[in-house]
Design a protein around this nucleic acid. Structure first.
Lengths: 146, 146
DNA sequence: CGATAAACTTGACTCATTCAAGAAAGCGAG
DNA sequence: CTCGCTTTCTTGAATGAGTCAAGTTTATCG
């Protein structure tokens, strides 16, 4: 986490490691998600075009789906929000979402590595993930309206 | 919970208690949400029309928003799903969602009344609710594809 | 260097949800 | 009981994130 400058070459590595072909849109999307945590698709499209020129929105949708499928990015979508993406994967962290402005921040769960994963009564479901969303007000919004 | 038959009169009471005008669409929507837990808007529209005849979809959307605002129903919307509603409110329960068929079931959190409400680092957010979604396979889907 | 399957472009389309303007109806005051 | 104000409902159009589909380009392997 210190002095960790991720380059296009690193993104290529990640893609190859996931058996995905290396294309300019994919490298650019992966870079955008790393650079803009919790960005929505529109913001990612903007970032990708700023770096690579014209890339179709469909390509970005396809790439995001492919990256999500192999686990290189994670898709999150709090109620009332469009889909957002982040590059921090595999570390079981959760999110705080501001009810007012929609801002999102990462939080590590207080209860350990795999929080609440054992439900009291799972109704026969086979559970593989527990997703936690904390709802509240971000610092800006809670001071603006105390 | 035993022999508890909720009638239109009860729904009226709930509406008045929440300072909402009592209208036929509102009583019908409240009844539909009580009768069809986790139903989406379309299913609720269907149930309302079966009981009350023509009711515009807009009216149902408006009613659901009003009921949600006063806390008579709760809106849930797992990633990739349309909005769903339930009448069980105020008891801090959570949900298991089937990744395959989208089925939803209620679960009480294993960690007590207000699970995980204290995040390790809340980034200055004022947290008022923790929403937990357990992802997995429902009994039908997990036996169909073991 | 091809061949071939995967990825991208273009453009149309879906559909849950919202917006807007006018008609209807609940409900408190008189 | 009914008047009038305000909320709620109806009708119909619009929005917008996301998907579908057909055809072209391109990454990768032999």
């Amino acid at each position: 986490m210190f002095g960790n400058v991720t380059t296009a070459a690193d993104y290529e590595q990640m893609l190859r490691g996931a058996d995905l072909r290396v294309t300019r849109p994919r490298v650019a999307v992966l870079g955008a998600v790393h650079g803009l945590p919790h960005a929505d698709t529109d913001a990612i499209i903007g970032a990708v075009r700023a770096e690579e020129g014209d890339v179709s929105h469909q390509a970005v949708y396809d790439v995001l789906r492919a990256l999500t499928a192999v686990g290189l990015v994670r898709r999150i979508q709090p109620s009332g929000s469009v889909a957002r993406y982040e590059a921090r994967v595999g570390d079981n962290h959760h999110h705080v979402v501001c009810r007012t402005c929609g801002a999102i921040a990462d939080v590590d769960c207080a209860v350990g590595e795999v929080p609440c994963l054992t439900a009291a009564d799972d109704h026969g479901f086979v559970i593989d993930e527990a997703e936690v969303i904390y709802w509240g007000s971000c610092p800006d919004c809670s001071t603006a309206r105390p």
